[in-house]
Amino acid sequence: MIVSPKIFYTHCYGKYAIPAINIFTLEQVIGLFRAGQKANAPFIVQMTPVARNYTHPDMLLGMIKAASKIYPKATFAIHLDHGNEAHAFDAIASNSFNSVMIDASHDPFEKNVERTRAVVIKAHKNNVLVEAELGVLSGVEDDLSIDEKSARYTQPSEVEQFVKKTQCDSLAVAVGTSHGAYKFSGGQGIQFQILQDIQHRIPYFPIVLHGGSAVNEAEIKRINKNGGRLNSSALGVSSDEITEAIKYGVCKINIATDLRLIWARVHREFFNDNPELFDPIIPGKSYMEACETFMLEKFELLGATGQVSQLKI
């Protein structure tokens, strides 16, 4: 069942968070929907412009539509992640998205407001929510590549005016996380004093945390044991930090890197252990199961398990 994220955010604020999962492949979609239905947990399926270019938006949306029929009790929203105006307007016109993100965070404040407001006007006419971003995250994801020197925390003093001027529906903030597998290289972690200040200035307004993957150390080791060369010092967002962030109004937590690491681990191990095989279906099934297991654990961590029954739909 497709549900507006607004229903999710109203219900979860301060109590639990909605996992927002970036999908690229059929295996990820199946694993996610299996877990969502089994856990009776709400979730957001999201795709980046790179994912849309990889297969075509119609293909991704077709997989999501098919999964919703196969798993009819799965309750979810569909979101465009990190789009520009062209991406957002295309998604809005498709009548297939519940929400879109306009990422103008690299622009000066007033330009960010202007670009975000243009998308909001178009989206709200079509009953689509808009996620905006204030502050710049470092890291690498898809075609995004921001070094630490260019990253900047969200300034709490700007959030109230930004939300008022743009009329956006949720706000992604930069509070210490980063995109990709190399998070917290400076060791500071999530800046909870910034989150607290933001919540004080815009109470009950949905906050979004990008770069929410845990980057499991065991996955890194297993990948490298089977020929990978990932940085073993990579750090993610700890479980304690995630659960603490929810108290400060974080309603949506984006997850992408963890599923990519699981993909690398499953396939490296399979072909290393079975060099005579070449059938993609066998490791594909293992990846579906691994995605499902991962998501069931994530629903539990975020407090989303069983929450569909409590939603006012």
Results as ranks from 00 to 15, higher is better:
1 M>W: 05
2 I>F: 02
2 I>N: 15
4 S>Q: 10
7 I>C: 12
11 H>Q: 05
16 Y>W: 15
17 A>T: 09
20 A>S: 15
22 N>E: 07
23 I>S: 06
24 F>I: 09
24 F>C: 08
26 L>A: 14
27 E>Q: 10
31 G>S: 13
35 A>E: 10
37 Q>G: 06
39 A>E: 12
43 F>G: 13
45 V>M: 10
47 M>E: 08
50 V>W: 03
55 T>I: 06
56 H>T: 14
64 I>W: 00
67 A>Q: 08
70 I>C: 13
72 P>G: 07
74 A>D: 04
81 D>K: 06
81 D>F: 02
83 G>S: 03
84 N>I: 01
87 H>R: 03
87 H>Y: 05
96 S>V: 00
102 I>K: 03
104 A>W: 00
104 A>Y: 03
107 D>A: 14
110 E>L: 10
114 E>P: 13
114 E>G: 06
116 T>A: 01
116 T>C: 05
118 A>E: 15
118 A>D: 15
120 V>M: 05
131 E>P: 09
132 A>K: 07
137 L>I: 09
137 L>K: 08
138 S>Y: 01
138 S>Q: 05
140 V>K: 14
140 V>M: 13
142 D>L: 04
144 L>E: 12
145 S>V: 09
147 D>T: 04
148 E>V: 12
150 S>F: 14
154 T>E: 00
157 S>A: 12
158 E>C: 04
158 E>H: 10
164 K>V: 01
165 K>D: 02
166 T>Y: 00
170 S>I: 00
171 L>H: 04
171 L>C: 05
172 A>R: 08
180 G>N: 01
183 K>R: 06
185 S>M: 09
188 Q>I: 10
190 I>S: 07
191 Q>D: 15
196 Q>Y: 00
197 D>H: 06
199 Q>A: 12
199 Q>V: 04
200 H>F: 08
203 P>E: 00
204 Y>A: 09
209 L>A: 11
210 H>L: 07
212 G>K: 15
213 S>R: 02
215 V>C: 09
218 A>N: 08
219 E>D: 13
220 I>R: 05
223 I>P: 03
224 N>D: 01
231 N>L: 12
232 S>I: 14
234 A>F: 08
235 L>N: 08
238 S>K: 15
238 S>P: 15
240 D>K: 06
244 E>H: 13
245 A>F: 00
248 Y>P: 06
249 G>T: 03
249 G>S: 04
252 K>N: 06
253 I>W: 03
255 I>D: 05
255 I>A: 00
261 L>G: 07
267 H>S: 11
278 F>C: 11
278 F>I: 11
280 P>D: 09
282 I>Y: 11
289 E>G: 06
290 A>P: 14
299 F>C: 06
303 G>I: 07
304 A>W: 01
306 G>T: 10
306 G>D: 12
308 V>L: 01
310 Q>A: 04
